[in-house]
Amino acid sequence: MDKTQLIDRRDALRATGAIVLASLVPLPAAASPEAMTAAMQKILGTATPKPGRIKLDITPLAENGNSVPVTVTVDSPMTQADHVKTIYLFSPENPAPDVVRFHLTPRAGRARVQTSVRLATTQRVQAIAVMSDGSAWSDSAEVIVTLSACLDAG
């Protein structure tokens, strides 16, 4: 944290008290590491994803966790013999580790998908691609999630 932000705590609370109202709503707990491992094992079995072939594009600094644009690209010829079957996104610090799954066929022509995701807090988002030959590839990215100043409860 910036040195200029080291101020009297009560003053800071007073100044931002109303503004943080919305964050007083209790947040659900993050998924446990066990839940995360279980979710990943369910799709991968005993296979261990290797780094490479998949690229996760996501901002390193999300200024609002309600909607964070994501692009996943996999290096694949997308032929009958060699294509991406499924792309998975995992969020270890969200209440549920599964975020989204994209199921592709060779008819996609290209393995590139986009969506927007929710991130409850700062975390390392993980993307895994499972290929037609059963191999699994992974990429991950640390995303810092900051809070907006002017939240309102409606």
Binding site: D2, T4, Q5, I7, D8, D11, A12, R14, A15, T16
Partner: peptide, 12 residues
Amino acid sequence: RSALLALVVLMA
């Protein structure tokens, strides 16, 4: 004054 000060100091 403290509230304003806090507001100002929060800003870099």
